[in-house]
Design a protein around this nucleic acid. Structure first.
Length: 580
RNA sequence: CGGCCCGUAGCUCAGCUGGUAGAGCACAUGACUCUUAAUCAUGGGGUCGAGGGUUCGAUCCCCUCCGGGCCGACCA
């Protein structure tokens, strides 16, 4: 028996070894643990739970498939829980139902011993209610559909309280598949994420706006201020950037004559990672001809309201300890008024030197690379954002930080731009788009000056984009919504990792391990390879670092004894030759 | 990048001014025909994140590193 285990792999846990043995046993019995055939089901667990009526006996013949999540075996009868994509349902198996004849293998051997929690099976039977009142499928016949050879964390639940729930973020994010299996509410979050996107798409399509795709690989990463990822195209031998925004391409399409275009775009920014930032993230950007930012504010209200209603059936949502009402109209206040409201200081018309004084007075850090716009932005971030719990449009931003935005129709030095804040976070950003090509070129050149001043986020000049504007772009309003952050808000999650299926993680540390040949080449007998690896010598190179061969010899003999391997101990001289 | 905390069985966690490890679940064997965190009995399972140091002796104390979390800084 010991030998039986050792020929598998010493690195496997006992439970994994047992499951691999079960795999072999199943094959011996003639059961394919990984059958190819389609398995036709006719119902989901949730449908049964919702619609079963014991008096009508309305599920006399069901077939469903899913993963075994728990088992309670009591001799000749067993209960188990089956989880399919819709949820969990209890199933009931009786030996003499599963095995009507003399051969009781399918129950006694296969179900009780060779199946495990985590295995995927299909069942046929009828629905009934147990004495305890639980809707249950009485199984007449089952089929193994896929054997699981790695034990799943066992999460138990009673009265809504989870026991031993997997909460370790490391495991939850790296092995999202496990998280999705054992934490059912996680699947729900991602369903809601898709629902939000669907809700927006439906609204846009109903208005006749066109969903488009624009380049992710861009020669000039435009449309936002951020540090890009850079890559290289071999055939063209040019650098390419992963997009930081799709704005400039969408506006080219408005020039091309579309009335409205939108894209759910993955953008990439080479910056810090934390609870609210992932290097790749999703932004919905939409551009509509002949509109302005006032119109866009109302449209944004409609988008947010619709998504909230479809997810929650109401516009009041709970986020952590706050209740947020997403019922329009949202408050609208200019950035300068908001600063005045929160600090009592009127900063309109101040020059750079005066703004620096204000920063000093308010205790806001600043540095010489910051222009007027960034100084105002810093004051706003520091003093105002925290007050914007309920949805609020902050409007009319300084020109300097808005190089793609039309000048304000009546307020000099400002632009027609708004950001929607909810729960103190920016959710949307929109403008009356700048369509004056000459103004646009000048703004790009101002960005160049900022860049020369040391601002490494300033925008690049996109000459082709200016050329497009020169042909004439209709007055247009554009808006972007951070899908990840909106999802966080609407699903009450506090970190972006919880709304991304596969958040970016540091690479997993690989344990390098040499193949057997490397060891045998050095004259090391096969049976001593495993003990050496267990002692930490996973590569032959590590053997070279051994200072005293006698110590290694001792360790090996000790390992042999401790694990009762029954191997013939090597001589000290032998061990010495391994180290050369 | 700085401060605080964490890393022990497959999972969740104990481990008392240092004496080479425990629980529950899971797993194995057995009992049990309506159980539901099923129950009962028995059993196996751990380089106590890695390396170094102090010590007769380190899971525990010290240093370095790796991985993770929270807070701050930077940053949309």
């Amino acid at each position: 028996m010991n030998f039986q285990i050792s020929i598998y792999n010493m690195n496997l846990s006992e439970q994994e070894q047992i499951r691999r043995q079960a795999l072999d046993e199943l094959r011996k019995i003639g059961i394919n643990p990984y059958p190819a055939a389609e398995y036709k089901t006719n119902v989901f667990a949730k449908d049964i739970l919702n619609k079963f009526d014991a008096e009508k006996n309305n599920f006399p013949d069901v077939c469903l498939a899913g993963r075994i999540m728990s088992r309670r075996i009591m001799g000749n009868a067993s209960f188990a829980e089956l989880m399919d994509s819709s949820g969990r349902i209890q199933i009931y198996l009786r030996r003499d139902d599963i095995c009507p004849g003399d051969d009781k293998t399918m129950y006694n051997t296969v179900f009780k011993h060779l199946l495990d929690i985590g295995d995927i099976i299909g069942i046929k039977g009828f629905v009934f209610r147990t004495q305890m009142g639980e809707t249950t499928v009485h199984v007449k016949e089952y089929t193994l559909l896929s054997k699981s050879i790695r034990p799943l964390p066992i999460v138990k639940e009673k009265d809504g309280i989870l026991f031993d729930a997997v909460t370790d973020p490391e495991m939850r994010y790296r092995q999202r598949y496990v998280d999705l299996i054992v934490n059912p509410h996680v699947r729900d979050i991602f369903r809601k994420r898709t629902q939000i996107i669907q809700s927006m798409r439906e609204l846009f399509n109903s208005k006749g706006y066109l969903e488009v795709e624009t380049p992710i690989l861009q020669a000039i990463p435009g449309g936002a201020t951020a540090r890009p990822f850079i890559t290289h195209h071999n055939a063209l031998d040019i650098p390419l950037y992963l997009r930081i925004a799709d704005e400039l391409y969408l506006k080219r399409l408005i020039v091309g004559g579309f009335e409205g275009v939108y894209e759910f775009a993955k953008d990439f920014r080479n910056e810090g990672m934390d609870r609210t930032h992932n290097p790749e993230f999703t932004v919905m950007e939409i551009y509509i001809a002949y509109k302005d930012y006032n119109w866009m504010m109302s449209f944004t209200e409609e988008i947010v309201k619709k998504a909230a209603l479809e997810l929650h059936g109401k516009t009041e949502i709970v986020y952590e300890d706050k209740i947020i009402n997403l019922n329009p109209p949202f408050k609208r206040i200019s950035m300068l008024d908001s600063i005045k409201e929160n600090t009592g200081i009127e900063i309109s018309g101040l020059d750079e030197a005066e703004l620096i004084k204000v920063c000093d007075k308010l205790g806001i850090e600043h540095d010489p690379t910051m222009g007027k716009g960034k100084l105002v932005d810093a004051i706003f971030s520091e003093k105002c954002e925290h007050s914007l719990v309920q949805p609020t449009f902050i409007i009319d931003y300084p020109t300097e930080t808005s190089p793609l935005t039309k000048m304000h129709r009546s307020k000099p030095g400002l632009t027609e731009r708004f950001e929607l804040f909810i729960n103190c976070k920016e959710i949307a950003n929109a403008y009356s788009e700048l369509n004056d090509p000459i103004d646009q070129m000048e703004r790009f050149q101002d960005q160049l000056k900022l860049s020369e001043k040391g601002d490494d986020e300033a925008m690049f000049i996109d000459n082709d984009f200016v050329r497009a504007l020169e042909y004439g772009m209709p007055p247009t309003s554009g808006m972007g919504i951070g899908i990840d952050r909106l999802t966080m808000l609407l699903t009450n999650q506090s970190s972006i990792q919880d709304v991304l299926l596969f958040p970016q993680m540091k690479p997993e540390k690989k344990i390098t391990s040499d193949p057997e040949e490397k060891y045998t080449e050095k004259g090391i007998p096969v049976e001593w390879i495993e003990p050496l690896k267990k002692l930490g010598f996973t590569t032959v190179a590590k053997l070279k670092e051994v200072e005293k061969h006698t110590k290694l010899h001792q360790d090996l003999c000790g390992y042999n004894k401790k694990n009762k391997l029954g191997l013939q101990n090597p001589s000290q001289e032998n061990v010495k030759t391994w180290l050369d």
